[in-house]
Design a protein around this nucleic acid. Structure first.
Lengths: 224, 224
DNA sequence: CGAAGGCTTGATCTCGGTCAAGGCAGGTGG
DNA sequence: CCACCTGCCTTGACCGAGATCAAGCCTTCG
């Protein structure tokens, strides 16, 4: 289970969350979204916590100059919607069609935490883990080159999503989304992918499906 | 009270932490450090939580290529030392001489949280706040130019530290520290400060003490 | 069939990194 | 007291990674 923000290298989902998941599940309501539908808006009331059940979403902020920063891609199992304030700092929009999201009343969750300290502790650990991952992401954005970022992203994705037959990985998001996630231009994303393809590090089945040929080379490109 | 990581714009310390502070204080031990002394090392056991009582410190990671990233500057009141893992992801070194740090046993703190749910909730809020600030910092590192970063840093600092007579702000850290915090070169930090000085946005008393003349201009330079 | 959106590629320009040098202040030893 | 050294800060010159601008291709959808 993951909190709100991604890192270059997520750890695999631990099964230690079963408890939290089960306690929460009875209190959630489910909803299905189309691609590009909004789950909640930046500035909206932060009255619920959420979890991705199926599909994919992006968590993003609008910057004053019109650009967009994607804070995280949300995949099945990820928890999100926490904010220190009573208003959301980010918007969340679905990337894939038929994305299913579970929603939990914030007040109810808070009460659940108060009455169940081990659960609260688990939640604290998730938050601390999220901070660790955000710090790794800070290094990615602050200290690495475009090609390194793209390699880090591909490895992260391959690690998180269900790998299909023969190691094929689906890219649910567009090049534009990837660019806004890595804080580089679309053209640079495209060029980096072309480079990796021409170096036979990855192959593409089509624009949205790739396979890692040389994982070693991909890892070698990464910073830290 | 602040957690482990800074943002371009911290909110003022709320007095709502009195409770947490008081409960913790009786359990802490204090120690005084010289400039550049290490509080703990990256990779060391994460058995304690800490709080800056007086002075200043930097929380940083070594990157494989030899560069350094400063994750946060720690100032009086800031809590730090949390990690999802049992090992620290970062080192913490003092910046100012005569920096005083309080130390708390992690196990003891965990127990305190378990036995006092409102306290645990407060801790959760601090963690969520920290996540918000890290996200703001991600935008700073990913999406803004050198001059914008420096302006953001100056505003943040002026906001956090005790302002001296006539609005003079002390810079406890070196230009090198600032560079590693903002993920730019020292030369660029120096050039940005020179630009701001020549535009009469700030003045320097000496290299480590400045005053904001035109706050409006400083804010106008900031992204988001 | 045409339009629109996503993806790729090429050409050009710019911000900031890197290299190099010099100024200044504080500390140390003669 | 001065000479020297060292570390911190500033400034200049140059260069390169990546942003931006421009154009064309492909797929999808009405």
């Amino acid at each position: 289970m993951q909190l709100t923000t991604a890192s270059a290298y997520r750890r695999p989902c631990t099964s230690a969350n079963g408890h939290l998941q089960i306690e929460m599940d009875s209190l959630g309501t489910f909803r299905r979204y189309d691609a590009d539908e909004t789950v909640y808006c930046q500035g909206g009331a932060a009255d619920y916590w959420y979890r991705i059940v199926d599909g994919a979403a992006r968590q993003c902020t609008q910057i004053s100059d019109g650009r967009r920063q994607i804070m995280d891609f949300l995949l099945p199992g990820d928890l999100f919607g926490f904010d220190a304030s009573t208003r959301h700092e980010c918007s969340v929009e679905c990337v894939a069609s038929n994305t299913t999201v579970a929603r939990y009343q914030r007040q109810q969750m808070e009460s659940l935490m108060e009455s169940d300290p081990p659960l609260a502790r688990r939640m604290r650990e998730i938050a601390f883990g999220s901070i660790d991952r955000l710090q790794a992401r800070m290094i990615l954005l602050g200290r690495s080159r475009a090609l390194e970022r793209v390699c880090g992203f591909l490895l992260e994705l391959a690690h998180r999503v269900q790998v299909e037959a023969e190691g094929t990985v689906a890219l649910p998001m567009s090049r534009y989304d990837i660019a806004d996630y890595l804080a580089i231009a679309v053209e640079t994303v495209s060029r980096s992918l072309t480079t990796l393809r021409s170096e036979r590090v990855i192959t593409f089945f089509d624009a949205r499906h790739f396979r890692i040929i040389d994982r070693r080379a991909l890892e070698a490109h990464c910073c830290r």
